[in-house]
Design a protein around this nucleic acid. Structure first.
Lengths: 336, 336
DNA sequence: CATTCTTACGAAAACGTTTTCTGATGTTTT
DNA sequence: AAAACATCAGAAAACGTTTTCGTAAGAATG
């Protein structure tokens, strides 16, 4: 809107457009004195360079995209916070896109991003994902892409994740040590690297402690809170019901709490619960919720930093970073 | 990155650049047959128009900015969700900027936005705000700006808010009816429309029920959780301490819970608490937290819709929309 | 003095679109 | 048959930058 541009500025100063441009970019071709004059006039007229002209010419958008399943989610909100912090400090702009756990949305977003609107992409895959090909297409085109949290299992992808296997293992171990004999695992339907790795940790812990693996203890949930709650209630009412629950995502722990209230099961007496979660109020819940907490903010920061390294050095060629951060297990009353 | 552009496409088709462009935009100047050929080739080569060239030429970015104090906050996360939902459906892109409650950041963001990177701005002011002038400058330049939640008190601003006065009034009334005689109000330092309107509702309720207003009951908190917790503890330990607390924002209610745990005050027996909050787990807290819940998602949607109306009809001239949505008071155990 | 080098600046092309203007062909009207 | 018109397509300018190249004037060199 600000209709003052280089042309206007150059007329005001009695200089050519190119000289003004060079002065503003602090080129050695311009004398110190002229630079000063230009800077002052630019300041005075509140000159703001047109970002589109600049991006068009330089083939650089100074913008990155963040593609996530949802935003009203403690984990992703914190991760974005980390991403923004790094990006803003680097002078980059951040576009966010929500896929709503919908592969179609994710695909069209990725396709769109190929238009060159951004210099790089940070993405956490939706559960309903089958778009690996599209993404590798992007990557093969030399486009910087960093996956975080929910990542593809392909080896060629730079990723930032938490030690999900270890988290699942330790959480399960903790439940076992608190006396649980039958531990259910609440997973999300579809393929999610996180949920699968966490499950593998869970299975490994069962094996280590000689607890037989029962497929009825793997509960596959959907994205609908109400039906999840019904499903969990059903599991908790069946013969040989679980006495411990490991929830792979926060919202399933919430649903478990509600389910227990409804069918009058007491946590932790009748059922011990532990969940992956970034809930700030975990310790204020009734009972306080034991959690495995991924360092979401740091994950965002690391992912963004990695992306900027990839963007900045043209040649990130053969090096593939796989960064793994530790999550912390915090035992509270729900699993004692 | 996708280096196929109109030139490449036109060569492939044996047409001129302009014809291809017109075909893609479905111009009447191009025959149906040619259009079909062009569309197919564009599809085949996965042509993605360069957004910068397009924006430069058309002076339209198809992008809006969201400027908020923080994102790791249930309210703002939900609001962004609403904004994104509307924007994505309209084919717009969303840039987000965090001010971290910092007026300097907010200023520089606004200044930057004048460069024309976006077609409109959605903003919720930071607490430390003194930048009204800058914003009206933007508005005077005919730039579409919609304020939501935390708004300036100037009459010329389109806003989307909740009935904060009413919420503060009813919440206070509820505490009084539950037997509270001395009710403290936790506010945030600096000027925030929300916190002030809520306080006025609080004061009005006190007056209606003939409760004397005591300035010591207005507790001005900062942005630091730890020092807030200390401050609240101090208030709860003083002579003539409050027996009820109305918290103007979610995080202060959390701090209150922690403070009570530390000094061994029981909610609701020793202290009744009610808070403005979008916490999904309010009913699972110990004790469950009474809340006044603003419809954050809808606020985001309304704000975005209003902004798009402003962007789309060039002339929104003398009409100023002030949309107010109702928040809902949910009484739970913390205030019974 | 003639040549090469700096220094400081301007002219113009380029980025990839969109849009206005112009024109060629064939079709309808007078 | 001449004139007006409709249809379709291309040429070229424009958006506001950045960058390459050219060059004038003076300084340094031989």
């Amino acid at each position: 809107m600000s209709s003052i541009n280089l042309k206007r500025l150059s007329e005001e100063l009695g200089l050519s457009i190119s000289s003004v441009s060079k002065a503003l970019r602090d080129s050695y071709e311009i004398s110190a004195e002229t630079k000063k004059r230009v800077m002052e006039m630019a300041e005075k007229l509140n000159y703001q360079p047109n970002p589109f002209a600049s991006s068009l010419r330089r083939k650089k958008s100074l913008t990155v995209a963040v593609v996530i399943p949802e935003i009203a989610n403690n984990y992703f909100a914190l991760a974005i916070n980390g991403i923004q912090t790094v990006a803003q400090q680097k002078g980059y702009h951040v576009l966010t896109y929500l896929t709503h756990e919908n592969a179609k949305d994710q695909e069209s977003t990725i396709r769109h991003l190929q238009g060159g609107r951004v210099d790089g992409v940070l993405i956490s895959l939706c559960s309903d994902t089958s778009t690996g090909n599209q993404l590798t297409e992007l990557q093969n085109a030399g486009f910087p892409v960093v996956f975080f949290d929910r990542v593809p299992d392909a080896p060629g992808c730079p990723t930032v994740t938490t030690d999900d296997f270890d988290g699942g293992f330790k959480a399960t171990e903790q439940l076992i040590k608190s006396g649980c004999k039958k531990i259910a695992y609440l997973r999300v339907s579809g393929y999610l690297s996180t949920t699968v790795n966490r499950m593998n940790g869970y299975l490994a812990a069962l094996q280590k402690y000689g607890i037989p693996h029962d497929t009825k203890m793997i509960v596959e949930c959907s994205n609908d809170d109400d039906s999840n709650q019904e499903l969990i209630k059903k599991v908790l009412k069946m013969r040989g019901r679980p006495d411990g629950i490991l929830s792979s995502v926060e919202k399933l722990a919430i649903s478990t709490y509600y389910a227990c209230t409804e069918i009058n099961l007491k946590i932790p007496k009748d059922l011990k619960v532990i969940s992956f979660s970034c809930l700030r109020t975990a310790s204020l819940l009734s009972p306080s919720l034991s959690t495995i907490t991924p360092p979401a903010f740091e994950i965002g920061k690391e992912a963004a930093s990695l992306l900027f390294r990839m963007i900045e050095k043209k040649v990130y060629g053969n090096r593939i970073d796989k960064i793994v951060l530790n999550s912390s297990l915090i035992q509270r009353n729900s699993s004692r």
